[in-house]
């Protein structure tokens, strides 16, 4: 049975030392730090300096979206998605492994579909010049980041092997 494990065993632990993993993790950490910073600048600015940070709302939205999609491949690599293998123990080991692979493939298909739709959204946004209302930040890069994140996560889940 696996819960939202924090990479406590097997594959997850070794992946946590991989270069790409550490790089994405560092970016995610930076994004969390920026989220905190934006709130602090806004709140402190408005009380101490009477100068609120008009873009705080939008910046929070965009940092949050970036964080979620930067972290998604990490969660996928950790085997951190909530899943239930309760019924699996009823089956012999080879069947269990097969079902585990199948579940990985099914998840990968869902993520690949997400990726494709996000690319379409991004292309639409390039064409329409979609940007945020106050800071005028273009939205398309966020859609492409999300698409890339889903593609990488799909790849990871496709390669998922059962822990020995």
């Amino acid at each position: 049975m696996t819960g939202p494990a924090a990479g406590t065993g097997g594959q997850g632990a070794s992946r946590r030392h991989a270069g790409w993993y550490r790089a994405l993790a560092a970016i995610a950490a930076l994004l969390i730090g920026l989220l905190i910073l934006v709130t602090c600048i806004d709140v402190i600015g408005r009380y101490l300096l009477n100068r609120p940070f008009g873009g705080a709302y939008e910046l929070t939205q965009m940092l949050l979206a970036a964080l979620v999609f930067v972290a998604l491949p990490l969660t996928s690599a950790d085997g951190g998605h909530v899943e239930v293998d309760l019924a699996l123990h009823l089956f012999p080991a080879p069947v269990q492994r097969l079902l585990g692979r199948l579940a990985g493939i099914v998840s990968a298909v869902a993520l690949a579909f997400f990726c494709w739709r996000l690319v379409l959204i991004g292309l639409d946004q390039v064409e329409d010049g979609t940007r945020s209302a106050s800071l005028m930040i273009p939205m398309a890069p966020l859609a492409f980041l999300a698409a890339a994140s889903c593609a990488v996560s799909a790849f990871i889940l496709l390669l998922r092997r059962e822990d020995p």
Partner: peptide
């Protein structure tokens, strides 16, 4: 570092749900 990493991965898990 662990606090950052665990928060990021838990968030992606929750957002996926």
């Amino acid at each position: 570092w662990t606090a950052f990493l665990d928060s990021a991965t838990a968030s992606a898990m929750i957002f996926a749900i």
